[in-house]
């Protein structure tokens, strides 16, 4: 093991003897643990939001980009003929991989969130929807609209461009917002721990004087505070992470929550992501406390 690696491990492990040199501080210790727990709890949700919106953006981008919808609005007597004509046009259009008319059941399912499950769709003037799946090359939307206007005048082509772009944009913004929230949480944690460490250093001025008098180096004195605050942040963040993950786990399921909330939370191996939060909290606490302690000790000398 290289000396540099060993010194890093020593710095992370700290010195229990040095830790013991600083008197226990029950109230501030509990506050630090509580704050770290609260931050970790929020970080779990920020992480879940980022991952979920990321998935949502990817799904919208890929699914909506590969599909289009043709809506046939025609008098009841012409509906079947125009549908067949439109399907005939579509099957001969380059770039269209497949096209099919949605069944009454499928159309009923689409309308169910607004009108309930027992909608008598056969008796209503509901437009016929045709789902178009593109191939990788895609089709010429302008040319297709021109051909459809001649063969099926009641057909309106929606290639999803109009609302796909803002949806993907919104999802991307949400993902960015989630990451920004995590960065802000880390920064707030660092600021909170720096303040707490500074308060602890000020409260233990006599301890520092005595340790200096007997020959303690700055790194040794700092290690007492670093070890203490790193452990507090680790413990608090672990508790907050566990509670946050449980809260995400208990969120309403996809079916119950409806379309917009689809996928909010973690999926698959993404459930492991929250484990990184206590580690990050520990690293943030280590760096913040060490920096604060060494700066304060330098100022006091």
């Amino acid at each position: 093991m290289t000396p540099r690696l060993q010194s890093l491990i020593d710095a992370l492990a700290g010195d229990p003897q040095a830790d013991r040199a600083v008197p226990p501080t029950g109230f501030t210790a509990r506050l630090t643990v509580l704050s770290a727990a609260a931050m970790a709890f929020l970080a779990v949700f920020a992480l879940a939001l980022s991952l979920a919106t990321g998935r949502l953006a990817d799904r919208w981008a890929s699914e909506l980009a590969q599909t289009s919808t043709l809506r046939i609005s025609a008098p009841a007597g012409q509906m079947a003929a125009q549908t067949q004509a439109a399907l005939a046009v579509l099957t001969t259009t380059p770039g269209v991989a497949s096209a099919r008319a949605l069944t009454d059941d499928e159309q009923r399912a689409l309308l169910a969130p607004w009108f309930g499950p027992d909608l008598p769709i056969e008796t209503l003037p509901v437009p016929q929807l045709i789902e178009i799946v593109e191939d990788s090359a895609g089709y010429d939307a302008t040319g297709l609209r021109a051909r459809l206007s001649a063969e099926a005048p009641g057909a309106v082509l929606d290639d999803h461009t109009r609302w796909r772009a803002p949806l993907v944009e919104a999802a991307s913004r949400l993902r960015l917002l989630g990451f920004t929230a995590m960065v802000l949480i880390a920064a707030a944690t660092a600021a909170m721990i720096t303040l707490a460490a500074n308060a602890a250093l000020a409260a233990n001025a006599q301890v520092i004087r005595v340790m200096r008098l007997v020959g303690a180096q700055d790194t040794y004195i700092a290690s007492a505070f670093v070890r203490r605050f790193t452990l507090r942040a680790l413990i608090g963040a672990t508790a907050g992470m566990v509670l946050g993950t449980l809260a995400v786990l208990l969120l309403p399921s996809t079916d119950a929550a409806g379309g917009f909330l689809t996928g909010l939370g973690f999926q698959g191996w993404h459930w492991l992501w929250p484990l990184i939060i206590p580690i990050l909290a520990g690293v943030v606490a280590f760096v913040a406390t060490r920096h604060a302690a060494l700066r304060t000790l330098k100022e006091q000398s």
Binding site: R212, L213, V214, G215, A216, Q217, D218, T219, K298, S301
Partner: peptide
């Protein structure tokens, strides 16, 4: 500062 600590 570390050298002073050593001296002490």
């Amino acid at each position: 500062r570390d050298q002073v600590a050593q001296m002490r």
